[in-house]
């Protein structure tokens, strides 16, 4: 989700493109190619700005968020994630404020993935230690391994900012909070991709 790539797109139009277009359009066009280039550049920036701000997080977020309380045993968390085919979810307090987010990544890092956990790191750990350490996980609760405090955004956040936040924090989903700070929804990477393409 790199908007900088879009910014470079407009540079790809050349003087030759414009001259070809001017030749294709019948009649005498009372502009020079550089006039057009200047109009195009400003119009492109304007359109980009409009598109970046046109769609906000609350328009694309999932409102029916699957959540767990902090005290949920990890076994239950895993079952929920598996059943719903998701890779992470918010952990909420009884008042629906967000305590943290628990995701595959938290499990991986607990199971020996280290600071930048990946599935392959865990496999490596398994091979090297002749045995896996999933056992540790059995007695813990959501609160023990969740990422906290969780990155969250207000519903009015424009889409491009959501993308930047995910990129900057290297996360795959971000909870959306309402004016009172309570969980209102969640935006996943896949939501962004579906909206953009």
């Amino acid at each position: 989700m790199k908007f900088s790539a879009l910014n470079e797109c407009r540079q790809t139009i050349s003087d030759e493109d414009i001259v070809v277009a001017m030749k294709k359009i019948p009649g005498y066009l009372d502009i020079t190619p550089s006039d057009f280039m200047e109009i195009y550049r400003v119009a492109y920036d304007h359109a980009l700005h409009r598109l970046k701000h046109a769609i906000t997080a609350e328009q694309i977020m999932t409102r029916q968020v699957i959540t767990v309380p902090e005290t949920t045993p990890l076994a239950e968390v895993v079952r929920l994630l598996a059943d719903h085919d998701i890779s992470g979810m918010p952990v909420i307090r009884p008042d629906r404020t967000i305590a943290g987010v628990i995701s595959e990544k938290d499990f991986l890092s607990k199971m020996g993935g280290g600071k930048s956990p990946s599935f392959m790191h865990v496999i490596l750990q398994c091979i090297a230690h002749t045995g896996c350490i999933a056992a540790d996980v059995r007695d813990l609760t959501a609160a023990d391994i969740m990422s906290s405090p969780a990155v969250n955004i207000p519903g009015t956040t424009p889409l491009f900012e959501v993308a930047e936040i995910m990129d900057r924090h290297n996360i795959n989903r971000v909870p959306v909070i309402d004016a009172a700070g309570l969980l209102a929804g969640i935006v996943a990477r896949s939501d962004l991709i579906q909206t953009m393409c």
């Binding site: 001017m22 030749k23 020079t32 550089s34």
Partner: peptide
């Protein structure tokens, strides 16, 4: 430094 625009066709 800018390019001159293309000419027009016969019908024009």
């Amino acid at each position: 430094g800018s390019q001159s625009p293309p000419g027009v066709g016969f019908s024009e």
